[in-house]
Simulated scan of single mutants.
Amino acid sequence: MAEPDGVAQIPQVEKVSSAYTQVADQLRRLIVRGEVRPGQRLPAEPELAAAFGVSRGTLREALRVVASQKLVTTRRGVQGGTFVSVPELGNLGDMLEANLGLLAAAEVVDVDSLVQVRAYIEVPTAGAVAASGTPEDMESLRRAIEAETVGTESGDVQAHRGFHLALLRAVENPLLEIISAPISSVLQSRMKRSVVPRERWEVVLAEHRAIYDAIREHRREDAERLMHDHLLALGELYKQIDLRAEPNL
């Protein structure tokens, strides 16, 4: 049988990742799936390295990766070792904010994408609070508006975030704040807010007041419509003051 001529063309293949990355990925899956539970101590380094068939140096690199994702923690002393972290909601928010920041910096996601996700969350949230918000919720929103009014007068451009946070907290689902708040933080970090005139922030405050009135009066559809329009306007403002773009105010 004759030998085939030429050099074989290799189809696109998946690149082999480094050993420590493969170990880190397996450890992450074990933790996320609950096969090793929060608070449990992992086996000692020699035993764990042998289980994965890697050197202790490779294992340590993998553990550093998993620790950076706040999935494990290391304790010193006689009772020390590497333990699966007990989950904390704040850690999840920090991780999401850090990764969103990297995606935004790399321009994988843009301002429109970030604002769109906020709208998916905050528009129905405004409607839900209008429909079933408690007197305590209304008081929290009122205080947020009051603080924002003072902040607007003093030039505190961060004061406007309080209203949105109070609204998210009113539904008593911590995941909403964990998802939405990091998006807001990433948007804030890439905005040159100092170029925005005070009059524009007064418009934002007026829009918040209108949303609050609709919520307080249990006008669900109006609350959702006003929040939608408010976030749409904010998106346009954010694009104008994006640090990566030329200001056009």
Rank of each mutant, 00 (worst) to 15 (best):
G80I: 06
G81T: 10
V84N: 07
S85L: 04
L89I: 14
E97V: 07
A98S: 10
N99Q: 14
N99Y: 12
N99F: 14
G101W: 09
G101R: 08
A104I: 02
A104R: 14
A105V: 09
A105N: 14
E107R: 11
E107C: 04
V108I: 14
V111G: 06
S113V: 08
S113T: 13
L114N: 06
V115I: 14
Q116A: 13
V117L: 14
A119K: 14
I121K: 01
V123W: 02
G127P: 01
A128D: 11
A130W: 04
T134V: 00
P135H: 01
E136Q: 10
D137P: 03
M138I: 12
M138K: 07
M138P: 01
E139D: 10
S140N: 11
S140V: 07
R142Q: 08
R143Y: 05
A147D: 10
E148F: 13
E153H: 12
V157L: 09
H160D: 06
G162M: 02
G162T: 00
F163S: 00
F163T: 02
H164R: 09
L165A: 11
A170P: 05
V171G: 03
V171F: 04
E172M: 05
E172S: 12
L176F: 14
E177Y: 03
I178V: 15
I178M: 15
I178P: 00
I179E: 00
S180H: 04
S180G: 01
I183L: 09
V186A: 02
L187S: 04
S189F: 02
R193S: 14
R193V: 14
R193I: 10
